[in-house]
């Protein structure tokens, strides 16, 4: 059998705008990206930067009311944008899986977790009740839940946060997906449990060549768990690079600001953190030019009037940035955006 070499996910000039009482809010603004099969992309940025809306847009999991979208997003060649939820159900069940921050809201509180997994198996894989129940227990074992036969009978609120996240992962992988979107899957969990859950995801990905988008605000998680990173600010990708390249030679002052404000366990106690002053802009009234300009110490008049496009760096063609005054010797190799 020939190995499919085509990218699994292609996003092209995607924008997602919400209608709000205050006016249109562009939560995702002209984003393009490509995911190769088996790769992982971390999406980072401050809260409200559009990480969740982007990752949900890509899989079509957005409310249908008050949303307008332009651009395209395909998964295995199928167009997602503009496709009705009814027609996406097949993809959600089989090709795409999701894990969210708060498993409590994604699980039905009144049903045993084993039943919830089995139900997804019966619907999507057409398994018999008996087979589905057996497979559910096997999946719980696979995600590292001790005494799975007993735990299958538990209700969500009888499990710890880490256990619930494992159940969510069991549901996510139940139908053998190719593409996993994990939105802050370990936010709020203890470091030990976080490591366990991320180890589990890493292990499952290796077994089945699973492609992943990992949304997180934790740069440590991104550094250790992803191949590529996209940094979002005010609805745009402002820097994107292979993970090693991003951390070795950051190009965007915003990314540098995030890194410098992160306390590090390997830095001496009382190391003064350099913070980014101010707050992200209001997406209903975004500033002209670079959206980061009001907070950027390098901002010039050009930054305040001309919006920097996402361009390739002369240092590394896979390192993209959107900045008029990039750091660390980066220079724009062409003014063309990614994918064009």
């Amino acid at each position: 059998m020939a190995i499919d070499q085509s990218p699994i996910v292609v996003v092209d000039h995607l924008s997602t705008t919400f209608r709000t009482p205050r006016g249109p809010l562009k939560a995702v603004n002209d984003v393009s990206l490509t995911l190769e099969r088996g790769s992982s992309l971390g999406i980072v940025g401050e809260s409200g930067s559009g990480k969740t809306v982007l990752s949900r847009s890509i899989i079509g999991l957005l409310p249908t009311q008050n949303v307008t979208q332009t651009g395209t997003a395909t998964i295995n060649g199928s167009e997602i944008i503009g496709t009705r939820h009814k027609d996406l159900l097949k993809i959600w069940g089989s090709e795409v899986a999701m894990v969210f921050q708060d498993p409590m809201t994604a699980l039905t509180p009144t049903r045993r977790v084993g039943q919830q997994i089995a139900e997804s198996l019966r619907i999507n894989l057409k398994l018999s009740r008996k087979d589905a129940n057996l497979r559910a227990i096997e999946l719980l074992r696979q995600v590292g839940i001790p005494s799975p036969e007993r735990r299958a009978r538990a209700y969500p609120n009888q499990l710890s946060g880490g256990m619930r996240q494992r159940v969510m992962i069991a549901i996510a992988i139940a139908c053998g997906p190719e593409f996993l979107v994990a939105d802050e899957p370990t936010t709020g969990l203890d470091v030990t449990v976080q490591a366990q859950v991320l180890d589990l995801i890493t292990e499952l990905r290796a077994k089945s060549n699973l492609t992943m988008i990992l949304v997180t605000h934790d740069l440590g998680v991104v550094a250790t768990r992803t191949d590529n990173v996209a940094v979002m600010y005010a609805g745009r990708i402002v820097e994107q690079a292979p993970t090693a390249s991003l951390f070795a030679r950051v190009a965007m002052p915003y990314t540098k600001g995030l890194l410098d404000s992160t306390p590090r366990i390997d830095a001496p106690s009382h190391t003064r953190l350099s913070s980014i002053e101010g707050r992200p802009p209001d997406l209903v009234n975004p500033p002209e030019g670079c959206a980061f300009a009001p907070r950027c110490t390098y901002a010039t008049d050009e930054c305040r009037t001309v919006r920097p496009e996402l361009v390739r760096s002369t240092l590394d063609a896979n390192h993209l940035f959107a900045c008029h005054h990039p750091l660390n010797g980066h220079q724009a190799s062409s003014s063309l955006t990614e994918n064009k």
């Binding site: 470091v191 490591a195 740069l219 440590g220 550094a223 993970t243 090693a244 951390f247 390997d266």
Partner: peptide, 8 residues
């Protein structure tokens, strides 16, 4: 179990 923002 703690992670550092440094892939190396």
């Amino acid at each position: 179990a703690a992670v550092v923002p440094d892939p190396t």
